[in-house]
Design a protein around this nucleic acid. Structure first.
Lengths: 192, 192, 192, 192
DNA sequence: CATGAATGAGTGTTCATTCAT
DNA sequence: CATGAATGAACACTCATTCAT
């Protein structure tokens, strides 16, 4: 019934392979030929799906970023209170960052590289809107500090990536208690 | 009187060129030949100062990171109160990130890439100790949340890099007022 | 009918080019780019067939050495008498050395360089067995001196390479009469 | 009294270093910088003594070859009988080849490479004259086969190099008895 | 649609040689 | 005489991309 086209399978294999290889040693260690091999595909085939390597990287970024932002709202409901809503979203984002390590590391690398172009970055953030709406509501209700959403993101969401990196480098170990501490810090930074 | 050795001048030119090129297009777009040209030096000369490209990148990272961390304490005194001390350091870090954009962007890229090796990361953080000491004092005095310094860093310092990135991408414009807002968010996230 | 695969043609062109260039100026004057050009192939293509330059040299050595040793027995029959058999093989080896000058010079250079690795040398000698068998038979029959085959080779076969070198350098001219003289010297050195 | 000039000491150190490095991995693994380092001399200094690398190699070849040929006659007297004289010279050559392995291997490599130019080869052989004279005398006396001296050299002297190579590669072990066997083979190949 | 052999420009690196000191 | 930092052309090798099959 719900068949997945062969081409969709290949796309997914290519995304997975790209993420995996880029994580291991950075962009420069993810040649098209290796990506192809890891995805069980011929190098030439990649060019049937993507215009070139730049395009591949951008598309993969969009796909992973979208998965990330969508995950944030998997059980979110618009009628949650601001605090409950934020906690719900934050916990989801943290869960993703700490469990889907491969994807999260890839995003962390992309978010700080000039390799991803601006349109792709925009595209990847499309689905974050509900969080921005929530913050706006919170600001109207006098609960959230009246600052730019970029600032709110910087202090409440972005730090999670740092913690994930440190855990990945085995410098810290994040227990559920630590995650709760982290949430409290995130919340105290943005709440009035 | 204050002579600077010729070799020191070349090292600095190489560091500058590396930072500049890596910023523009990422590591993969900073070939040794271009770095050499930009530093007004022959490609072969780089290898008199650095063992190979990996070593060059690591050393440049250490140098820039050290400049960054040292800048943080340029006018810091150990007998400052915890809050005054933190504000002093934080403002310095922000000043560096927002004024020395080239260096800051380079660091932001390095901090999220697997290209820098662990010993170099360690080396680069050596000079951050006074901040850790301050936090420890703050925790003893019951002023700072009793959490790991990685957590404190994640929520109070790391966000600055995000704000710098956004400003660089011309998505926000950080006025002094915004910087003050940011400082307040940083402080509220770590203070008890 | 007798089709030769395209890849086989390229291999042969590469072997020929390598032999030719190494002969002209030694190993150090046979860059991969020149080998590629002479074989009408792109530099990158070499690496589809050989792991690296070392491997190329070794493989070419094996191929040429094998051709040489096989040529030695092209019309040899095991039931020849020892003397007739030796003469047959010796004349073949001399014919090869003096007619296939390119290949012979290449071998002469390889046999005295530390560039060829031991496994490749072993591999190249595989097909010389019938000569060793003949010598052993000759020793049992009391016709050949009871010394190591290396010694027999040194005095009866190896000198041919020297003569070829001298002819190549135009210091001597080897007429059929000279070749006969040489054969007599070879035989008198190993016969009892 | 018999002082050796500083410059002579350097020349000798350079010769030794060149021989040593070329032996280990061939010409291509003997860069001027390494030769200089091994001879405790600055790279630039080499060019005070030799015009360029080609010249260095040629001169070193001449020097070593001369030492080799001179060694052959260290205790030779012109009034020796042909057979005694040949044995004397042959044994000296064998002694050199088997004891001065470094020099011998270097010569073996040079003798089969197009890297040494013809004038240097000529120069290196200058001192071999007494052997040629002896052979001529032997031919007049009807003791030595009436063939070109190149032929005599090929079958009686050149094989020693092969035996040395095999010993170096640990394929044979040359006891004094073997050396005697070898001498007998050399003699029987050239005597009438 | 898919392949993968072939390409060749481009990379990191080496090294013979020079020259200011 | 001697140095060794500096050079830059040349090298071995890689990899994004193409195209005949």
């Amino acid at each position: 019934m719900c068949t997945v086209s062969k081409s969709q399978i290949k796309r997914e294999a290519l995304v997975k392979a790209t993420v995996n290889l880029v994580n291991n040693n950075g962009f420069h260690a993810a040649p098209m030929s290796k990506i192809a091999k890891m995805a069980n595909v011929s190098p030439g085939t990649i060019y049937l799906y993507y215009k070139n390597k730049q395009d591949l990287i951008n598309q993969v970024y969009i796909e992973v970023k979208t998965a990330f932002t969508k995950f944030a709202f998997k059980d979110y409901e618009e009628n949650f209170s601001v605090e409950k809503g934020f906690k719900n979203i934050w916990k989801n984002l943290a869960e993703f960052k700490l469990k889907e390590v491969e994807e999260a590391m890839f995003l962390s690398q992309c978010d700080n590289t000039p390799m991803i172009d601006e349109p792709s970055r925009k595209e990847g953030l499309k689905h974050l809107q509900p969080l921005l709406d929530l913050w706006e509501r919170g600001q109207k209700e006098g609960i959230i500090k009246p600052v730019s959403p970029y600032m709110l993101y910087a202090f409440s969401i972005y730090p999670i990536a740092f913690l994930m990196n440190m855990q990945q480098r085995e410098l810290i170990k994040l227990t559920p208690a630590h995650v709760n501490d982290a949430y409290e810090m995130a919340w105290s930074s943005i709440k009035i």
